Amino acid sequence: MEKRTFDLGGKKLLVVDDDPVVRLLLKITFTSWRNTLFDLAADGAAALKRVAATGYDLILMDLQMPVLDGFETARAIRSGQAGFVNQKIPIIAISADLSEAARTKCLSLGIDEFLLKPLDSGTLHGSIQCLLGNQLPPGRIG
Score class of each variant (00 low, 15 high):
residue 4 R to A: 14
residue 44 G to V: 05
residue 137 P to G: 04
residue 65 M to A: 00
residue 76 A to C: 14
residue 39 D to N: 09
residue 103 R to Q: 12
residue 49 K to Q: 14
residue 29 T to R: 07
residue 121 S to E: 15
residue 32 S to G: 14
residue 119 L to T: 05
residue 125 H to W: 13
residue 42 A to T: 07
residue 27 K to H: 13
residue 75 R to I: 06
residue 122 G to P: 00
residue 38 F to M: 07
residue 42 A to G: 10
residue 74 A to H: 08
residue 107 L to C: 13
residue 64 Q to L: 13
residue 115 L to G: 03
residue 39 D to R: 06
residue 37 L to R: 13
residue 46 A to D: 11
residue 132 L to F: 05
residue 36 T to H: 03
residue 89 I to M: 01
residue 34 R to Q: 15
residue 87 Q to H: 06
residue 59 I to A: 01
residue 108 S to I: 06
residue 130 C to M: 02
residue 2 E to A: 15
residue 68 L to R: 13
residue 90 P to G: 10
residue 27 K to L: 09
residue 126 G to I: 10
residue 8 L to G: 00
residue 130 C to W: 02
residue 67 V to Y: 05
residue 124 L to D: 02
residue 43 D to G: 07
residue 126 G to C: 11
residue 59 I to K: 00
residue 15 V to S: 00
residue 100 E to A: 12
residue 141 I to Y: 01
residue 128 I to D: 03
residue 86 N to W: 00
residue 19 D to M: 09
residue 93 A to E: 07
residue 116 L to N: 08
residue 91 I to V: 11
residue 87 Q to V: 09
residue 19 D to R: 07
residue 131 L to T: 00
residue 95 S to M: 12
residue 41 A to G: 04
residue 96 A to D: 11
residue 78 R to K: 14
residue 100 E to Y: 02
residue 54 T to P: 02
residue 141 I to C: 01
residue 70 G to D: 02
residue 33 W to H: 06
residue 135 Q to K: 15
residue 51 V to Y: 00
residue 92 I to V: 14
residue 18 D to S: 03
residue 127 S to P: 05
residue 34 R to W: 10
residue 80 G to Y: 06
residue 142 G to F: 11
residue 138 P to M: 02
residue 75 R to V: 02
residue 11 K to Q: 15
residue 138 P to S: 05
residue 56 Y to N: 08
residue 128 I to K: 06
residue 136 L to F: 12
residue 2 E to T: 13
residue 112 D to F: 01
residue 116 L to V: 10
residue 13 L to G: 02
residue 121 S to D: 15
residue 128 I to G: 01
residue 91 I to H: 05
residue 46 A to G: 07
residue 99 S to K: 03
residue 104 T to A: 14
residue 129 Q to K: 15
residue 129 Q to S: 15
residue 63 L to F: 02
residue 47 A to C: 05
residue 75 R to C: 08
residue 107 L to D: 04
residue 25 L to V: 13
residue 71 F to C: 07
residue 85 V to C: 06
residue 59 I to P: 00
residue 12 K to G: 04
residue 3 K to N: 10
residue 139 G to M: 09
residue 79 S to Q: 11
residue 73 T to Y: 05
residue 52 A to Y: 05
residue 89 I to P: 01
residue 9 G to W: 10
residue 115 L to C: 12
residue 94 I to Y: 02
residue 76 A to K: 12
residue 70 G to L: 01
